[in-house]
Every structure is written in C-alpha cells, then in structure tokens.
C-alpha cells in the first residue's frame, strides 16, 4: 500500500474506506436493479418481446455471441476511426480558424450551420455518394463528432494569456513559434474537453451509420439493434447494453489519455 507516498503528492486522496465504497456502491446498485427487473418480469408476467428480463438477455448473448461480437468490433472500429478523423481534422480546422479574426468571421457561421444539419437526413445522401462501406460510416461518425472539437479548440487557441504572449513577443518569437509553443498548449485543456464530448458522439454516429448502411458488407451494432427489434428482444437489449458500454469506454478512455498525455501539468480536475 503506497498510501503515504500518494497522500504527500496529492491532498485529495480519499480514505481507503471511501475508495472501497466508490467501487462497491455502484455494483450493489446494479445488482439491485437487475434483481428488481427480473422480479418485475416474472411477477407481472411481461411478454419478452416487450421487456425481456436480464436472464433472457443473457440467454440471447450466449445464443448469438459470435454475431454480437463481430458487430461490436465493427462498430468500435468505425467509431474509433470516426473519432480519430474528427480529432485530427477538427484540430487542423481550428488551427486555421485561430489564425485571423477575418477567417473566423468568414467561416464560423458555416461551421455552426454545418453543426445544425440533421445527420439522419444527410446519412442516406452520404451513402448514395460513397456507397455502403466502412468509410461511409466513419464519415458519418466524424460528421457528428467534429463540432465540439472545432469549437472548443478554436476557443482554446485564441484564449492565450496576454502576459504569456508578451513573453513571446519579448523574445521575438515567430508566428509559428507562438502557435506551437503557446497557442497549442493553451488550447489543450479545452481540446481535451471537446475530445471527451466527441468520443461519446462518435459512437452515436457509428450507430447511426450502421443503421443506414445495413449489412452491405458486414453489420455493425446499429444495424443489429434494428434487425433484432422484432425478432429477438433479448438480443436487442444486449446490443443496446454493448453500445452503452462502448460509449462509456470511449469517454473514459479519452479522458484518461487526455489526463496522462496532455495535461500532466494541470491540477487534473478534468
């Protein structure tokens, strides 16, 4: 137990008892919900196509495990690629927008309008253009997740501390040096916040993409939900559960990476 070492580096380390509670509490709540849910289904005799119990969902997972697994990997790959594209392209676009006021004034309205375009309406169009492919789903996923990256990062890049900027001007820094050594690091906390929102949105986008692309080459979770809706309610619930877990993992993983890789210097209250 390295408790003493830790508490010297950070003052907010919870006591061991409350750390156990932080893990045990949610597990207990989950158990209670599952038991209550199953009891409700049994006692009220609810048909399984309306509300399958946890045991029924488990049975479906066992029966269709391979199919669920394949769809899961596909959706994870789509959402992961979509997130990667929106982080990269979003950061580059924000860098362009941050270069001058006139660029922001000219392009920001279109970025905002772009954000309000309903993806449900655009997705079929994208499929017409680019086909029923993996890349199209990646495109839809990044389409839906790029906005928070652009808007947060742009704000971050232009919110440079005046005294910090003075320091660079005193040393006659070039525009590129100011961008790389000052604007980019300044923007990272806001970029990280945008990335976390984008992470959750990218899974949603991949799901929407799956749904429209269907089983063109190989089905993703979004299509599986749609397929299972009428035939196997247990599988549908299982798919929803997996989607939720993926979304949560994407969010948590992005948060963790941002903390470790980008924000070591911060007080880490992200």
């Amino acid at each position: 137990m390295t408790q003493t070492a830790r508490s010297t580096t950070r003052g907010r380390v919870p006591a061991p008892a409350s750390r156990i509670l932080a893990v045990l509490g949610p597990i207990l709540v989950l158990c209670a919900v599952l038991v209550g849910w199953q009891a409700l289904v049994w006692l009220r005799d609810i048909p399984k196509f309306i509300l399958p119990g946890p045991l029924e969902i488990l049975r479906s997972v066992q029966a269709d495990g391979a199919r669920l697994q394949a769809a899961t990997w596909r959706t994870v790959a789509e959402a992961g690629s979509g997130l990667g594209v929106s982080l990269l392209v979003g950061f580059l676009l924000a860098s362009l927008l941050s270069q001058a006021k006139w660029i922001r004034a000219s392009f920001m309205p279109y970025v905002l309008i772009f954000q309000t375009v309903p993806i449900i309406g655009v997705a079929p169009l994208l499929i017409t253009w680019f086909g029923n492919t993996f890349s199209t789903v990646v495109l839809i996923s990044s389409f839906i997740s790029i906005f928070p990256v652009i808007s947060n990062t742009t704000t971050g890049l232009i919110s440079v501390d005046a005294a910090h900027l003075d320091l660079f001007r005193l040393n006659r820094a070039t525009r590129w040096q100011i961008y790389w050594y000052l604007q980019v690091p300044t923007s990272l906390p806001l970029f990280a916040a945008g990335a976390r929102i984008a992470a959750a949105a990218s899974v949603l986008g991949a799901c929407v993409g799956d749904y429209f692309v269907g089983s063109g080459q190989q089905e993703g979770l979004g299509f599986l939900v749609f397929q299972a809706k009428d035939r196997d309610a247990g599988l549908m619930f299982a798919t929803l559960l997996v989607l939720t877990i993926i979304g949560f993992l994407f969010f948590s993983l992005t948060t963790a990476i941002c903390r470790v890789a980008l924000l070591r210097w911060e007080d880490q209250r992200l």
């Binding site: 005294a163 910090h164 320091l167 040393n171 050594y181 210097w265 911060e266």
Partner: peptide, 21 residues
C-alpha cells in the same frame, strides 16, 4: 507575476527564450 508557462517544467520555462532564439 512569475508568468511561467504551466505546461513546461521549470527547466523548460527557463530554456524557452533560448529555444525561441
């Protein structure tokens, strides 16, 4: 104020003017 860049270690803060030059 000290006006140090929080994302650079003390060493790298002191080094910054030389790096820029």
């Amino acid at each position: 104020q000290a006006n140090l860049l929080p994302w650079r270690t003390v060493y790298r803060n002191i080094e910054l003017p030389l790096r820029l030059q």
